[in-house]
């Protein structure tokens, strides 16, 4: 009975294919599951993938527990995660001065070799001063600490100067929350800066700045789209449940 039903289903797909004039191969759920069963994923590799995520995203306590529970060794010294997360957190909370100090404690080369990051941190510091209504302090900081960097004549310095002007213009508006540059005061600006520092620290530790899992998920979507052109097969549409759909055309 169920077998007969399946066949009808395949015939229907085939007809749809013919009507649409496509020459797609049809792979039934049964056939596809066989193919899936031939794929062997090593538990060890999955554990590594999970550990990589925990470490890169800074879940130090979870990484520590995972090491114990699964026997997976992290690909970085766990102690460095705590330091990295402290920097990230400081930026997220608006304590930029503190963050800069912490980065330099970790490795002074990070900011020395990365003028763009250093500028973005200084810019964030300026934003925080303006947010807190410290107008005089903000002006002094902009002119003495930030402006001189913008005088040199290259493209990077030019873009810094433009950013500086944009940031300082926050001071010109009464209602900063409804001004053209209000986005600078948004929490997302802090998060952007925080993740930039996070990435720079990871790079300085010869670690990839992004976890592998999200890019594998993107690759899955891409691979499915590519295969769509050639075949009708059971897709996974909802990544978080990973359920196989029935093949459509």
């Amino acid at each position: 009975m169920s077998c007969c039903f399946l066949d009808l289903f395949a015939v229907q797909l085939l007809l749809e294919c013919l009507i649409k004039g496509s020459s797609k191969k049809i792979i039934t759920k049964e056939e596809w599951e066989k193919k899936l069963n031939d794929v062997k994923i090593r538990k060890e590799d999955m554990n590594k993938l999970v550990m990589n995520f925990l470490v890169t995203e800074g879940y130090v306590d979870a990484a520590e527990k995972f090491r114990k529970e699964s026997g997976t060794e992290p690909d970085i010294d766990l102690a460095t995660i705590t330091d990295r997360m402290a920097v990230k957190k400081a930026v997220q909370c608006g304590n930029v001065e503190d963050a800069i100090e912490k980065v330099n404690d970790l490795n002074p080369e990070i900011l020395d070799t990365n003028p763009q990051l250093f500028f973005h941190l200084q810019q964030q510091r300026l934003i925080e001063l303006i947010r807190n209504g410290k107008v005089a302090e903000a002006l002094e900081f902009a002119q003495e600490e930030l402006a001189p960097r913008g005088e040199e004549n290259d493209i990077l310095q030019q873009s810094f100067l433009e950013e500086l002007e944009r940031t300082v213009s926050l001071l010109a508006f009464e209602d900063v929350n409804n001004c053209p540059v209000a986005e600078l005061l948004d929490i997302s600006q802090r998060l952007k800066t925080a993740s930039e520092v996070n990435a720079a620290i990871l790079t300085s530790q010869s670690h990839e700045k992004d976890p592998k899992l999200p890019s594998l998920l993107k690759m899955l979507i891409w691979a499915q789209n590519q295969l769509d052109e050639k075949a009708a097969y059971p897709r996974i549409n909802d990544i978080s449940t990973a359920t196989l759909e029935d093949p459509g055309v």
């Binding site: 794929v39 993938l49 899955l220 691979a223």
Partner: peptide, 17 residues
């Protein structure tokens, strides 16, 4: 696990294509 199912799907798609 869900992760394993995704990785199997990923591999199978590449192989099939």
């Amino acid at each position: 696990s869900c992760l394993e199912r995704l990785l199997r799907q990923l591999t199978a798609c590449f192989l099939e294509k």
